[in-house]
């Protein structure tokens, strides 16, 4: 590696004179940027159970609970029976969002949106089909893994039932 060239040129020195005069205070800026990002993610993780593997938390692989280990369970009452719901592909982004940041409000929104589709029964489940019928009463539950030593269980993170 060659030696550094001579000191800054006059043009370089004039590039950011105002900022240069604030160098002492700007020195705290990089660490503040990272600190704020970490604090924001930590707040989201503890308040709305945001995904540990995403965002600025640096919490990768630290827990059994992350978006990939969670589940969204959707059921509905169809012809008097409670049946599982096969989610339409168009709701994929909504479901991903629920897995990353599950809240009762976002679960309720998905339950309401499912009511907009028409449904048919197939193999003990219902799936969206334009020749189907409208039904109501969708139940959306987001669950996460828990661990007690080496025993895995699960608990509810968010739940909503559309009227």
């Amino acid at each position: 590696m060659s030696a550094e060239p001579a000191a800054n040129s006059a043009a370089d020195r004039a590039a950011a004179p105002r900022l240069r005069s604030h160098l002492a205070s700007l020195r705290a800026l990089p660490i503040l940027v990272l600190l704020v990002a970490i604090a924001a993610q930590a707040t989201l993780m503890t308040s709305v159970n945001a995904d540990r593997q995403a965002g600025s938390g640096f919490a990768m692989f630290s827990s059994v609970d992350f978006a990939g280990s969670r589940s969204v369970v959707v059921t509905a009452t169809y012809n008097g029976d409670v049946v599982d719901v096969r989610l339409p592909i168009s709701t994929t982004d909504q479901v991903d969002g629920l897995l990353r940041s599950p809240t009762d409000d976002s679960a309720a929104q998905l339950a309401r949106d499912l009511g907009e589709f028409e449904w048919v029964e197939q193999d003990g489940r219902i799936r969206a089909n334009t020749d189907g019928t409208n039904i109501a009463g969708f139940s959306v539950t987001v669950r996460r893994l828990t661990a007690d030593g080496h025993e895995l269980g699960s608990e509810v993170l968010a739940h909503a039932v559309a009227p």
């Binding site: 630290s62 828990t146 661990a147 030593g149």
Partner: peptide, 9 residues
């Protein structure tokens, strides 16, 4: 986290 040290995570 409560589940890392046990190896469960």
């Amino acid at each position: 986290s409560g589940s890392f040290i046990s190896g469960a995570a």
